[in-house]
Amino acid sequence: MSLQTPIARARGLGSAKNGSEHWIVQRVTAVLLLPLTLWFLYFACSLVGADYASVKAAVAQPWCAALLASFMIIVLYHAQLGLQVVIEDYLHVRWLEISALVIVKFIAFFGSIVVLLALARVALGA
């Protein structure tokens, strides 16, 4: 028994049993990644051939650390959203599908934590 009105249910639940949120977030992260990707490529290309100390100093700059962290976290989020769709489309053995989804989501989550801690360490000069 749901307390939702029929129209609220229809808006939120299609045959896929979840709403359009996934689709929207995939687009929102895509739009965010347009400028962030351009910045990242510019930043990465500017560091080619630089020694360890210069790379570390460049990444440690407050804006660079923040932009790089944002880029990485949004990339990982966008990646797991995309991989989710690919897995759901092509993996038709249910337990494999669920396992792959959990693994992909966990790797994206863990990768985000790892990046945040690593960049915090670089940026805060530990």
Partner: peptide
């Protein structure tokens, strides 16, 4: 993306 995660970790390490 995972390669870049490794790069960040290597930079911190």
């Amino acid at each position: 993306a995972l390669l870049l995660v490794w790069g960040c970790v290597a930079l911190a390490a």
